[in-house]
Amino acid sequence: MKRIVLISFTAIILIVTFFSGIFIPKRAFVVSVNFAKQYLRTDFYQENVLLKLQNENLKAQLQRVQDVPDGGVIFDEHRSDRIAANVFSTYPFNMKDTISVDRGSSDGVANAMVATVADSILLGQVTGVREHSSVVRTIFDSHWQLPVRIGPDNINGLFEGGNDPKVVLVEKQIKVGDGVFSAAKEFPMGIKIGEIKEIKEEAGGIFKEATIRTPYSIGEVRAIFLEQ
């Protein structure tokens, strides 16, 4: 909607200028055009990011339904007690281990709440709460560890956070593209973390480890959900 209004406004200015002979300094005109181009480019970029997250969310839901064992209970992304929160910018610093959001105790946020991206993708956990803001520790914290299950065979592994998250202590065969889901008691069972990106043998050859591709870039996340 904002893009349509901006395009219409720019078109009106150009038409009026052409037919009425209104003088517009060249520098001012160039600045206006450049601003419009930058605005549209940013708007398109954010729409693409949102569309990507929506697609990844649908993919996570489908994988979760396919991979859950018979009789198992899976994470419900439609719970009514979720709190939507906007992420504060840390630009130009590239902070990945924690983020701050604009919801706090006055909005019902409490410590240990689960933070998700696009409904059903794990981002982290609330570790600090103020009246109107909160701090979320993300899975990119290098000290983060939690048990996970991998792929349609629900193979056990241990997730380790950091700039390049990975799973270790994997005893059985896994493959690139397998979904990685939380199996920790602190989080809803079956919430997706990411997918297997690259596999390698650990020292000794008994276990395997693999890097994980998360379905988002932390710098692109503008809004998240918080829930118990």
Rank of each mutant, 00 (worst) to 15 (best):
L6E: 13
D97V: 00
P92F: 04
A118Y: 05
I139S: 00
S134C: 04
N34E: 03
Y216I: 04
I150Q: 01
E195R: 12
G71C: 11
E77V: 12
E220F: 09
R27Q: 13
D141R: 05
V31C: 02
E227T: 11
L6Q: 08
V87L: 04
V176W: 01
A11F: 09
K208W: 03
T138M: 04
G179C: 06
F29M: 15
Q38M: 02
P188W: 07
I206E: 10
A36H: 02
V129M: 09
E195F: 01
I218F: 04
E198D: 13
E195D: 14
A210K: 02
N34F: 07
L62F: 14
D43C: 01
T10C: 12
G194M: 07
G124T: 05
N86L: 14
K2C: 02
A60E: 03
A11E: 01
R41S: 06
Y45R: 15
D67S: 10
I22T: 14
F187V: 04
K59G: 07
S133Q: 14
T127V: 15
K197R: 15
V168D: 09
I121V: 11
A28I: 15
T214S: 04
G108T: 03
F29N: 08
Y91M: 02
F18Y: 14
S142M: 11
V221C: 02
G205Y: 09
F44E: 15
D97T: 09
T90C: 06
E198R: 14
E77N: 05
I83M: 08
S8D: 07
G157D: 03
I7P: 01
G71E: 06
N154Y: 03
F88T: 01
F9I: 09
G72I: 09
I224A: 03
A11C: 07
L58S: 14
Q173D: 15
D119H: 14
K166T: 06
Q38A: 06
E220S: 13
L122Q: 04
Y45A: 07
I74W: 02
G151V: 01
H132G: 12
G104E: 10
T98F: 14
L158F: 03
T42E: 15
N34V: 11
W144C: 13
I193E: 08
I199K: 06
A60Y: 05
N57H: 12
L40T: 01
N34M: 13
A183N: 11
